[in-house]
């Protein structure tokens, strides 16, 4: 196996991992603290990407667009929380699934109405569009490294927020025991809105950062939402640390698996079998990983509650 290729794929996996972490960190808190199954989190990711495209078209600047898109997504998230989700906190999970499923249908169509059915593209800032040689003969796109850096920065910030501040202490307590936090006399509604806004901003950031790498289109958040679910299930609901470990694990296993599993199978089976089974198995890898982890730990690696 080519070590340079392995390094490149591992970095690609890490990049996918930090992206998933940005989505999972907010969502796992929403699940844990508000006991709310929010399917519309992927929609916020999509909204972030669309707003990024719109603001870039308007300002012509990547940085300005990013600085506008993230708070704008936060506002969209808070509006959704106030108008719809707030009414779903006391409902059972099935109602939450259906209500937020309705939100997804709505948002997926709304972006088509506003921006048309064709995919939009977001330009990378020219300063970040080049490559850098990690090792001699191993060029790697700078932008992807920037995403990894940004993701790790956010992880560090969240880790500080959750472990070092009073708000963070409430968030942690809320994730493992929401009733107790309410009993402490904390304004739980405010905490909910705050956490939801934080999650929305992180989802928007993920969408905005991913926009130059993908085509921005309707339903782009759906697939990534389910990957985020896999991350949360593996990490354990309500655990930011679990979300981080699981996101990196899923990102790397998925990316490296897709790159190397077909090659690996070719060593064992004949070419025809390997070519057919390789991609199929690679596409199932993270789900099988999830099943295997659940077989031993039904509440995920760091999960406290179901």
């Amino acid at each position: 196996m080519d070590p340079v290729l392995l390094l490149v794929q591992a970095l690609n996996g890490l990049q996918l991992g930090v992206m998933l972490f940005l989505l999972a960190a907010g969502l796992t808190l929403v699940f844990g603290i508000m006991n709310l199954v929010n399917l519309a989190h992927g929609s916020l990711y999509m909204v972030g990407a669309y707003l990024m495209a719109a603001f870039q078209g308007w300002t012509g600047s990547f940085v300005a667009a990013l600085l506008l898109a993230v708070p704008a997504t936060l506002l969209v998230g808070v509006a959704v929380e106030l108008i719809v989700l707030r009414r779903l906190y006391d409902r059972d999970h099935l109602d939450q699934v259906l209500g937020t499923f309705g939100l997804i249908l709505f948002f997926n169509e709304l972006v088509r109405v506003i921006w048309g059915p064709a995919a939009l593209f977001v330009a990378m800032p020219s300063a970040l569009s080049g490559t850098v040689a990690l090792l001699p003969g191993a060029p790697y796109p700078v932008y992807r490294l920037v995403i990894i850096g940004a993701g790790l920065l956010v992880a560090a910030f969240l880790s500080w927020l959750v472990t070092q501040t009073r708000t963070g202490m409430l968030i942690r307590a809320g994730a493992s025991n929401p009733i107790m936090v309410a009993a402490l006399g904390v304004d739980i509604r405010l905490l909910f809105t705050l956490v939801f806004g934080l999650g929305a901003a992180l989802a928007g950031l993920a969408g905005a950062l991913a926009a130059p790498l993908l085509s921005v289109e309707s339903a782009m958040g759906d697939g990534v939402l389910i990957l985020t679910f896999v991350v949360i299930v593996i990490g354990g609901i309500g655990s930011i640390r679990g979300a981080f470990v699981a996101a990196v694990l899923v990102g790397i296993v998925d990316t490296v698996g897709r790159a190397f599993l077909p090659i690996l199978l070719r060593e064992i089976f004949n070419r025809q079998v390997a070519n057919a089974a390789g991609p199929a198995l690679a596409s199932m890898l993270i789900y099988l990983l999830m099943a295997a982890i659940l077989a031993f730990r039904p509440r995920g690696l760091f999960g406290a509650r179901g």
Partner: peptide, 16 residues
């Protein structure tokens, strides 16, 4: 599993 985990896992397997 049960609750939210069950919802997400059945969804994930279907996606697989």
């Amino acid at each position: 599993t049960s609750g939210m985990y069950f919802i997400m896992i059945t969804l994930a397997f279907a996606q697989m």
